[in-house]
Computed example of a mutant assay.
Amino acid sequence: MSDKTEEAGWATAKTLAEALPFIQRYDREIVVIKYGGHAMGEEAVARLFAADAVLLKLLGVHPVVVHGGGPQISAMLDRAGVKSTFIDGLRVTDEATMEVAEMVLSGAINKEIANWITIAGREADVRGVGLSGKDARLLTVTKARRTTRDPGSQMEQVVDLGFVGEPKKVDPMLIQALIHAEQDYVPVIAPIGVSEAGQTFNVNADTVAGAVAGALKAKRMLLLTDVKGVLDKNGNLIRQLTVAEAFDAIKTGVATGGMIPKLETAIAAVDAGVEAVVILDGRRPHAMLVELFTEHGAGTLIRA
Results as ranks from 00 to 15, higher is better:
Arg91His: 05
Ile73Cys: 10
Glu18Lys: 02
Lys57Asn: 13
Asp226Ser: 01
Asn234Val: 03
Glu42Thr: 11
Glu196Asn: 11
Thr85Met: 10
Val100Phe: 06
Asp184Met: 07
Ala144Val: 05
Tyr185Pro: 03
Ala80Leu: 15
Glu7Trp: 10
Arg137Asp: 15
Leu138Tyr: 09
Glu6Phe: 15
Phe201His: 14
Glu29Cys: 06
Arg47Lys: 12
Met259Leu: 13
Ile119Pro: 02
Gly282Asn: 01
Ala46Gly: 13
Gly297Arg: 12
Met1Glu: 09
Gly70His: 14
Arg28Gly: 00
Val65Thr: 11
Ile73Arg: 13
Val92Cys: 15
Met155Val: 14
Arg149Glu: 11
Arg122Gln: 07
Gly41Val: 06
Gly165Ile: 03
Met76Pro: 08
Ala39Thr: 09
Ala101Gln: 01
Pro71Thr: 14
Arg25Ser: 05
Met288Val: 14
Ile267Glu: 01
Arg239Phe: 07
Leu222Lys: 04
Thr242Gln: 00
Lys134His: 04
Ala8Tyr: 09
Ser106Asp: 06
Ala218Asp: 06
Arg28Met: 05
Val290Gln: 02
Thr207Glu: 04
Val194Gln: 10
Ala244Leu: 14
His180Thr: 12
Thr200Ala: 11
Val65Gly: 04
Ala249Arg: 05
Glu275Lys: 09
Asp160Arg: 02
Lys262Ala: 04
Glu112Phe: 13
His296Thr: 09
Gly41Trp: 03
Ala215Met: 14
Lys14Ala: 03
Gly89Val: 02
Ile260Met: 15
Arg91Trp: 07
Met288Trp: 01
Gly198Ile: 03
Asp150Arg: 06
Glu156Gln: 14
Ser2Lys: 12
Val270Arg: 10
Gly121Glu: 00
Val208Ile: 14
Ala272Asp: 08
Asn115Phe: 11
Gly70Trp: 15
Leu289Gln: 07
Ile250Arg: 04
Ser74Ala: 12
Ile73Glu: 07
Val126Gln: 06
Asp94Val: 10
Pro63Val: 13
Thr12Ile: 04
Ala190Trp: 07
Val45Trp: 06
Ala181Thr: 08
Ile260Asn: 03
